[in-house]
Write a protein that binds this DNA or RNA. Structure first.
Lengths: 246, 246
DNA sequence: CGTGCATTTGAGAAGAATCAATGCCCGTGG
DNA sequence: CCACGGGCATTGATTCTTCTCAAATGCACG
């Protein structure tokens, strides 16, 4: 249970110094605990703050007029939540705690001031935003052009990879802290169909489950089903960082 | 047929001065003409330049391993193409000319230098990136949680709105410079089904077509079918711009 | 030991894909 | 001028995937 904001995501472009990482951490207000299944910030809210997710899983979602909901992203510790809202006057996406969660709030003005002072900081935010955009592109491709079982395979592979990075998965084994209905809302499927496809993956020996524990015993098999190659972002940000330094 | 890069998109956050807009225009190299259905830049290419779309329609797409393709965005004149690739070492998305197209190429280094010199310029890129991210979120929601006919309604409303902004649509009337197959690749549908749903919309009096001309005679009706409310981004970017100025 | 949420299962319906033709428009070459 | 071919749109018949509705099971928790 780490209670200080983890730096995984901040280091991904290797462009921030330790001091800068400390500065971001310092931006965050006191830790706020949010109970499971509670809104951190609701959609349409005028609270355009950004939240640093210190601990627990959260999700960002969007409501449709027909009453359906699309989950935009499953957020893990170290993620920066709600940053899209900097471009509009009301929060685009709702933020909900999936598990008990700890966040630190960063007012937009504080972020603005830091970015103004440090061009590298702004460059980091820009690269980070582009990276989120890529993640969305990938998911749009899953949802638009892959079968239910392929989407599920993509989801599990992606989740495993992200959890491994933050030490919440080992040997392709992790805890699923998300319900099948929520997975459905991420992938554009119903809970019932998610269930059937999970059982199908299990039957084929591609996953193993016991309670909320998940294991991926056959990664090549899963990758084979998944429609898209997982992409690794070896980010070479020198073109921007060096310019910002000059 | 405008051949200088249009400034619609550059003005959307009201944060760039005329001089800055001129500076962006100046970044672009000589106009490059690209024939219809030709790649501007292919997926996976090491060319990480950015392209300013001066004239014509283009699209950004992603190939899946199963041979399918997901179209990520339909680009109109004034759009900035390919900027996601700044965060990775190979181009994420392929760029293709949908009609005869004119682009101006901006090397990443030139963009980096401009952004380093002008924090407002970088702020603009950041806000613009967030806005694209929102557009992707909306589309993920259409594709994930709306029926075929609702997706089509969303698409037509969105296209009409964007075309109106650049003067290529008047009185909800515009030219569709995209095939039904391509629309399908955007919305996660087959060309056949796109056709059926278009005819259904026509039958219900929600659209009128003759050749490639499209008219939307019943906007309220279309909006009623479309699942998501169209969002307008009244961007208040003062929190960032003023900070960058200080 | 209920109570409430999540998962599981079944049966049937609906939505969209697939397969296969046909028609239409338009540019090209004879 | 007209036949021809290619790309796109249209249509029908059929199949397949996924949803819907409904009910049962299991499980955690007070």
């Amino acid at each position: 249970m780490q209670k200080s904001y983890p730096s995984f995501r901040l280091r991904e472009f290797a462009c921030l110094s330790d001091g800068e990482i400390e500065a971001i951490r310092a931006l965050g207000g006191p830790p706020i605990d949010v109970a499971k299944n509670t809104a951190i910030r609701s959609e349409g809210s005028t609270d355009r703050s950004i939240y640093l997710l210190t601990d627990g899983w959260a999700l960002s979602s969007l409501l449709l007029r027909n009453g359906e909901r699309q989950i935009l992203k499953l957020h893990l510790p170290g993620d920066i939540l709600g940053s899209t809202s900097m471009a509009v006057d009301r929060a685009i996406d709702g933020l909900t705690a999936l598990t008990p969660v700890t966040v630190r709030k960063v007012p937009l003005e504080a972020l603005g001031a830091l970015m103004a002072k440090s061009p590298r900081m702004m460059a980091f935010m820009l690269l980070s935003c582009q990276k989120e955009r890529i993640a969305l592109m990938d998911r749009l491709a899953w949802v638009g052009r892959a079968t239910a079982i392929a989407r599920l395979a993509c989801f599990l592979l992606d989740l495993n990879e992200r959890l491994t990075l933050i030490g919440q998965a080992r040997d392709d084994r992790f805890e699923m802290r998300i319900t099948q209905e929520q997975v459905g809302d991420m992938l554009g499927l119903t809970a019932v169909h998610v269930n059937r496809m999970l059982r199908e993956l299990e039957r084929r020996g591609l996953i193993e489950r016991s309670g909320s524990n998940m294991r991926l015993p056959d990664m090549p098999g899963l990758r084979n089903i998944a429609a898209v190659p997982s992409r690794r972002m070896a980010a070479d940000a020198n073109w921007l960082i060096e310019a910002a330094d000059a």
